[in-house]
Nucleic acid binder design. Structure first.
Length: 449
DNA sequence: AAAACGGTCAACCGCGTTCCG
DNA sequence: TCGGAACGCGGTTGACCGTTT
């Protein structure tokens, strides 16, 4: 667990770098490359630890570092990506050529975070309101004042932390910029939600949930047909999907650490949709979807470090989950419940009429070899969604997606300027997918649905 | 004039992950 | 397979500077 700081060695300098040190480091790397950072200081004649040299190089001396103020475009990228990725500064930095993670982190903490808090908290910065140039803040005002956005941000944020408010605002921005239509989001979310269900089932069953409510959920989930999302939501809320209804195998109630929906305010106790309206501002289906996609399109496991902002771990892991992952899966289940509780009716559900009850698969059992999804809408494999997840769905050709009846139909995908919205999602995945400095990396693509 | 305060940002610290012998 | 070294990341610190009181 950790180790002694490398700079504790006697005789090594700390603190600000002098021009002479910079020159030595620069000259050495330019002629030799950095190779091993640990060996570099000695070879370059520097009384610094390798770590300090690496930081100085990557954050300051590197020739491709971009200096100066962040542009509006860069601000927007940071805002968008932060809404999706959270404090994963290095990941964000890969999409801003010339900017370091440290620089972006500092900029967020000293500029953007503060600004967003002021906006979402209804407190206008006088300095901002007096400027006549169209700043990003003014642009944001237009977004926030638009008829489409007002319902989403309507004064229901008091329960959120400032941090979450900043996130909400970023998400509002993103959804506005994208012109993504709620109806389509919901339809899509319905698909993803349905995709998750088997694994939720598995997760619950794996941990032998003892709650009668959960047992009921397990018994009904695989056979019940919900005619309407309202009926489904009502059923879930009235029966099982309440924060206290799920306990881990340790007997501890779990609330997702990454969810911004607090279970402490009683909003989940009401089964009526009206009881959750206050949270529609936060539950942005497209972002939830995107977070799911992020989890599954990543070629490497998502960092387990705290504060990533993503929903950690994955509930749709393969069977070889570590205890930590299992715990995270439970948290994911909780997150799904909270989403449903917070926004009943807005989440579509996949009907399961005529399907066989779900069964658990162990790592040793042979994997079904059924064909791929015949009515494939998403190119799941290319997005890195594991085959074992798809298998749960492949047999279910009879699935239908029901969406929120009263959703606001504002248009169709074809009206969005992209083929079935493909461009939007492809762009988003490009943003959050392989970094731009890896030209050979494969970017997940989205096919029609 | 000077102390207090607040903002900025380079650098550090500690921890987790990856690499490699 | 294991353990140590190296690397990378995100949070935090502290020096510096401008503004306010």
């Amino acid at each position: 667990m950790g180790r002694a700081p490398c700079c504790d060695k006697i005789g090594l300098r700390k603190g600000a770098w002098t021009p002479e040190e910079d020159q030595k480091l620069l000259a050495y790397i330019q002629s030799h490359g950095h190779g091993s950072w640990r060996a570099l200081p000695k070879q370059a004649g520097l009384l610094r630890c390798g770590k300090s040299c690496r930081l100085r190089w990557t954050n300051y001396l590197r020739p491709d570092i971009k200096r100066g103020r962040f542009s509006l475009e860069e601000e927007q990228v940071i805002s968008h990506l932060h809404a999706i990725l959270g404090n994963r500064w290095s990941a964000i930095a890969t999409h801003l050529p010339g900017r370091t993670d440290n620089e972006i982190k500092n900029y967020w903490n000293t500029h953007l975070k503060k600004r967003m808090n002021m906006q979402t908290g209804g407190i206008r910065d006088p300095a901002m309101s007096t400027t006549h140039s169209k700043t990003s803040t003014e642009t944001l005002d237009l977004v926030l004042d638009s008829p489409d956005m007002k319902p989403l941000i309507s004064s229901k944020l008091s329960h959120m932390s400032q941090w979450d408010s900043a996130r909400l605002e970023a998400e509002v921005r993103l959804s506005h910029d994208s012109q993504l239509k709620m109806q389509d989001c919901e339809s899509l979310l319905g698909r993803m939600q349905g995709l998750m269900c088997p694994k939720i089932h598995n997760s619950l069953a794996t941990h032998q949930a003892t709650s009668p409510d959960c047992k009921e959920l397990l018994s009904q989930r695989s056979v019940q047909m919900f005619q309407t999302p309202e009926a489904a939501s009502s059923h879930l809320l009235n029966n099982c999907w309440k924060p206290t209804s799920f306990r881990s195998h340790e007997g501890v109630d779990h609330i997702s650490p990454t969810s911004t929906l607090s279970s402490l305010e009683g909003q989940h106790s009401s089964p009526s949709p009206a009881g959750s309206e206050a949270h529609t501002g936060y539950v942005k289906p497209e972002h939830f979807i995107l977070k799911l996609l992020l989890q599954n399109s990543s070629s490497s496991p998502i960092s387990h470090k705290q504060g990533s902002g993503l929903m950690h771990g994955t509930a749709i892991n393969g069977p070889n989950q570590s205890p930590w992952q299992q715990n995270q899966s439970e948290l994911k289940v909780e997150e799904m419940k909270l989403l449903n509780a917070a926004s009943p009716g807005s989440l579509g559900l996949i009907s399961t009429e005529g399907q066989q009850p779900l069964s658990l698969r162990s790592s040793s059992s042979p994997q079904p070899t059924s064909s791929i999804i015949s009515k494939s809408s998403w190119d799941f494999p290319s997005m890195g969604i594991p085959p074992e997840l798809l298998l749960d769905f492949r047999d279910r050709t009879n699935t239908t997606c029901v969406t929120q009846k009263n959703s606001t139909a504002l248009g169709t995908w074809s009206e969005l300027g992209g083929l079935d919205g493909k461009d939007y999602w492809t762009n988003m995945l490009q943003l959050v997918g392989p970094p731009c400095n890896q030209p050979n990396a494969t970017v997940p693509t989205i096919t029609k649905w």
